[in-house]
Design a protein around this nucleic acid. Structure first.
Length: 110
DNA sequence: TTGCTGACCGACG
DNA sequence: CCGTCGGCCAGCA
């Protein structure tokens, strides 16, 4: 299936995020060719639990590095713990040194 | 089938 | 500085 849907591509990219790295919804959307569909990336994460494989949605945050969707992991601090589990420091629902951990698919994957 | 909503982003006043 | 608005696409009632 080379012609996978927007959703499927999102899951694929998110799964490619290496350990200890994070990315943003807009970065993924831009990598898919639809910069304005950043919301869809977030929406895809919403139904990511419906996927057969585990999607590290905790590695996906907004442009500011803020854990906007932390509440969707089944708990308000589940996402933060998952990130801290990967040596990522989270303060005030925000990733410390976000740019340092930022992983841009269109830049790293090229 | 139509319409609303949504874990975003960037622009405008 | 902060609040508001439009755009993008797919799922659901």
């Amino acid at each position: 299936m080379t012609e996978q849907s927007f959703f499927n591509k999102v899951y694929e990219v998110v799964r490619l995020i290496p350990y200890g790295r994070v990315t943003s919804y807009g970065a993924i959307a831009q990598y898919l060719g639809s910069k304005g569909s950043a919301r869809m990336v977030g929406w895809a994460m919403n139904m990511s639990h419906s996927q057969p494989l585990d999607v590290p949605a905790h590695r996906v945050v907004n442009r500011k590095g803020m854990l906007t969707g932390k509440h969707h992991f089944g708990g308000p601090k589940v996402m933060q713990e998952l990130l801290e589990n990967e040596d990522i420091i989270v303060v005030n629902d925000q990733i410390a040194g976000f740019t340092k951990y930022f992983w841009d698919p269109s830049r790293e994957l090229l």
